Simulated scan of single mutants.
Amino acid sequence: MNILIAEDEPVSRHLLEVTLRKWGYEVTAARDGAEAWEILNRPEAPNLVISDWMMPKMDGLELCRRVRGDQKKEYTYIIILTGKGKKEDIVKGLNAGADDYVIKPFDREELKSRVGIGERIISLEREVRRLASTDPLTGILNRGAFMDRLTQEINRCNRENTPLSLIMADIDHFKKVNDTHGHQAGDRVLQEFAETLRNALRSYDFVGRYGGEEFMICLPGTDGAPARDVAERIRKEVESRSFTLPDKGGAIGVTASFGVVSRAPESGEDLDMVIKRADKALYEAKGRGRNCVCMAR
């Protein structure tokens, strides 16, 4: 874990750095609250902060207020380091947004314990967020998390003037699988289908379960023809794969239909427009007899 230290006094800052590194943490150091705030706004910013109260440019309490007023997805745990030991000062620090405090000069064992508490809380928060964003059956992104990430990706593509493609996939005649082989078999097909999609993608592509037997894939930086090739490759993989039946020792084959849409940054299309076009292309694929790929017009 990377810990950010915000401390204007050089000797105290150095002592904190040495102590934390000795315990196995990575350390990023800031000389005042303003520099710490700038660091916290970078990508991959630390999630745990040890901040002095009294600092030039921006003090520790103002840093707490700014962090709490930010709409970051991940939680930032803040420990205030202060010589102010009065009860009213501690309450003031906590009310500003600090999670914990350590009185100067700090005791190493006390600091180690309080940092450990912060680390556990951050780990729990990350696990809660992971569970909230994951489809429990397939282990991929659920609809809400996928849509949030797709929105972020569209905004990024607008800033960087790059294309983006979306693939909407639907398992053909899935109801027949449930009716013939049971819902456990249907669940297994969904799990293995999601695995097939995930294995076909690059590290920065992402896939989510849109609902029922419908799935969506986002291909950042990819325009129409390559996106169609990806969808066709997945279609062939699904068609050739045997899907395991639970408790029966057998397997079945399934097919899937795919709608592909490519979004150019200059198009100005928003999230709803892109999804509507992908859905229309998928509907066309089903109208052509299923087990095929159709590009949005």
Rank of each mutant, 00 (worst) to 15 (best):
D107L: 04
A251L: 07
A225N: 12
V254Q: 04
S123T: 12
L197V: 03
A169N: 08
L4V: 10
V115P: 02
F258E: 04
E62W: 04
F106A: 02
N2L: 14
I275Y: 03
L131Q: 15
I80E: 01
A96L: 08
D135H: 07
A98S: 06
D179F: 13
F258K: 00
M54D: 14
P136L: 09
S267H: 01
G139C: 05
A29K: 14
A45W: 01
V67D: 01
R297G: 08
D107C: 07
K86P: 03
T162K: 14
K104S: 04
S240M: 05
K176T: 15
I117E: 05
I39C: 05
M1P: 03
D279G: 08
N41F: 01
S165D: 09
I50P: 11
V115C: 09
L4K: 10
N199T: 07
D70A: 15
T138W: 00
R149I: 05
G144S: 14
D223Y: 11
M55E: 06
T76L: 03
A251K: 08
T134G: 12
G289Y: 00
R156D: 07
L201I: 01
Y25L: 07
L219M: 09
I252N: 00
V128P: 06
E153L: 05
E44V: 10
L190R: 06
I39F: 13
E125P: 08
T76D: 02
R114T: 06
Y283I: 03
L61A: 15
N155C: 12
R198F: 01
A29Q: 13
G253W: 01
G60D: 00
K248F: 09
M273H: 12
T19R: 10
E160R: 10
L245S: 01
L111R: 03
G186W: 14
V274S: 02
R21H: 06
L245H: 02
A296G: 00
K236M: 05
K280A: 15
M273A: 15
R241F: 01
E232L: 03
T162R: 15
P46I: 07
A6Q: 08
E239F: 02
E269A: 05
K286A: 07
A34C: 06
R228A: 15
L190A: 02
N41A: 04
P220Y: 12
A225Y: 11
D89Q: 12
T151H: 11
Q71S: 11
H181Q: 06
D170M: 05
R68S: 03
R68P: 03
G259V: 01
I154D: 03
E7D: 04
R65M: 07
